[in-house]
Each structure stands twice: as structure tokens, then as C-alpha cells.
Amino acid sequence: MPEQLEAMPTDWTRALAVVAHPDDLEYGTAAAIARWTGEGREIFYVLATRGEAGIDTLDPVRAASVREREQRASAAVVGVTSVEFLGHRDGVIEYGTALRRDIARAIRRHRPELLITINHHDTWGGTSWNTPDHRAVGRAVLDAAADAGNRWIFPDRSWDGPAPWNGVRWVAVSGSPSPTHAVGVDGHLETAVRSLLEHRAYIEALTDRDPEEYCRAFVEEVVSGAAARFGGRPAVSFELFTR
């Protein structure tokens, strides 16, 4: 039997999801977010880019507009109404102090107990190489969790700047090749499929498959992959870092 995943913590009320691109959260994680918002928890989205380099057939200005609109619609499906874009360049996000600063400021604004991000490891497991944007943002989120609580790092001298926030208790990394925890998503699969399907322009440029068939197959693969290590229940897995 594979090692079983622990249940995700439940003693929190507010989370902030920080990822690189529109659609990053919808490839699996949205099922967990649908469950959490359904339980009355607050979740906010921050995206490093507007996904402007993601559709080969659209120029970046047009693609950014389309993908921002799709992301807002997708978030609404799972009960998320706050979606922000940091304006970093799609495809060439640089890990460093500028990215850490922007994420730390977002953490200070939203004051979450739980941070959610995407796989920061070199691979998705085995030899499936991860993208530079995912690696940069995931690492920056892990670092910014501490930056946000230190008033001497990225001090905001404006009168109404957000105060430091040292209340982040966990960082949950989705898509990790080394998951430790999971959350059951029974009853939320259809919502997750609809959320991913809102990225229709991106999906139609990505594959020749029927968009709904593609979305359903992907979501089912993600939740069934975690099920074997979570009592057979459909689940979304995370690598959980505590602070």
C-alpha cells in the first residue's frame, strides 16, 4: 500500500492562492477551493501574470484580455470574487526580490492563514520538467510567507500601506511530486470541471479534443490519482509546509 496522505488542516478561515498564470488553479486545485468556499471560508486569488504568452494564435495584448476575463469567470464558479494580477511578464518571470516583494504585499493585504501555490520543484515527478514560471512563483511564495511578517523586509512607508502579517501558518503546494496531505472533494467535481471549462479560449488553442471532455478527463485524473492514498476518496493533494 502507498503511504497514506494526511488530511489538510481545517482550523483556518482565510486563504490566499498565488500562482503564475490564469488556469494554474483550475487544473485540479479548484475542486478543493470549491469545497472550502462551500464551507464558508474566504479565498483570494493573486496571479503573477495575465497569461499573455499562453495562446499562440493571439497576440499578447489580446490574449491577456481574454485570459484575464476567463480567469475571473473561472474563479466565480468556485465562489472566489477577488482576483488580482501582479503584472509580471508571462513566460519570463524572474525569481528575486521584486517578485517576493509583490507577493509579500499581497499577503499583508489579505492576511491569510493558509497560502496556496503551485509546484515549485524542478519536475512534476520523474522526468516531466516543470516550467520556469511555476518554479519561480512557488519558491517566491514560500519565501514571501516569512517576508510578509518581517517589518524590516519590504517596508511600506506609505500612510495606508498594509501592516506586516505573520499569521501564515501553512503553505500548501498543489501539483507537487511529493504530496503529504489531501482534502476530499466528493461532490465538487462538476464545479471543478465547469471552472476549468471557463478557460475555453486557452483550451481550444491547446487541444483538438472536445473542451468539456478534456476538462472532465483532466479533473477526474487528478482527483483519482490522490484517491489511492486517501482512503479511496476523490481528493486533491498538496505538499504542506508549516510555519
Rank of each mutant, 00 (worst) to 15 (best):
S158T: 15
G40I: 07
H21G: 00
E213H: 14
A163E: 15
G184K: 09
G79L: 03
R139S: 15
G167P: 12
V19Y: 04
P112H: 08
R216F: 11
W12H: 08
L115K: 00
H199Q: 01
A228C: 11
G138V: 06
S224L: 09
E68M: 04
R139E: 15
R216N: 12
D133A: 08
A75Y: 01
A235R: 09
G96Y: 08
S224Y: 12
A64L: 05
E52I: 07
R216Y: 11
R194W: 06
G184L: 06
V141I: 03
E213F: 13
A146T: 07
H134D: 10
G87V: 07
P132I: 07
E3Y: 12
R194H: 08
G175K: 11
V78I: 03
R62W: 11
R139F: 14
G231W: 05
E213D: 13
A32Q: 12
T180R: 01
A104M: 02
R135Q: 15
P162C: 06
R200M: 05
W129T: 15
R108T: 07
D133P: 07
D90R: 06
S74V: 01
F85R: 04
A15E: 13
R67L: 05
A192T: 02
T29E: 13
I107D: 09
M8H: 11
E94Y: 10
W12D: 09
G167C: 11
W152E: 15
S176C: 08
A34K: 00
L142E: 08
S195T: 01
M8I: 15
E42W: 07
I116R: 09
T57G: 07
V171W: 01
R72P: 00
R229I: 04
P234L: 05
E6F: 13
G28S: 13
V236Y: 10
V236Q: 12
S82R: 12
V78D: 01
V193T: 02
M1N: 04
A31K: 08
R169K: 14
Y214P: 05
D56C: 05
M8A: 15
P177N: 13
A7W: 10
V141W: 01
V18Q: 04
A48G: 05
S178H: 15
G91Y: 03
R233S: 12
E42H: 08
R233F: 08
D210L: 03
A172M: 04
Y202T: 10
G96R: 05
E84M: 10
P9A: 14
D56P: 04
A172R: 01
T10R: 15
T123Q: 13
C215R: 03
E6N: 14
R72T: 00
I203E: 02
A30S: 14
R89I: 13
Y27V: 14
P179I: 03
E6V: 13
F241C: 09
D143W: 04
T207I: 01
A63D: 06
D102C: 02
A7C: 14
L197Y: 06
T123K: 15
P155A: 02
G231I: 12
G38Q: 01
N150W: 06
R135S: 12
L16G: 10
G187A: 00
G91V: 03
T117A: 02
R169I: 11
L114A: 15
G187N: 00
S178N: 14
D208N: 09
A73F: 07
Q71D: 08
E6L: 15
R229D: 05
D160Q: 09
R105S: 11
T37S: 06
T242F: 04
R35M: 10
R41F: 12
P177W: 12
L115N: 02
R72I: 00
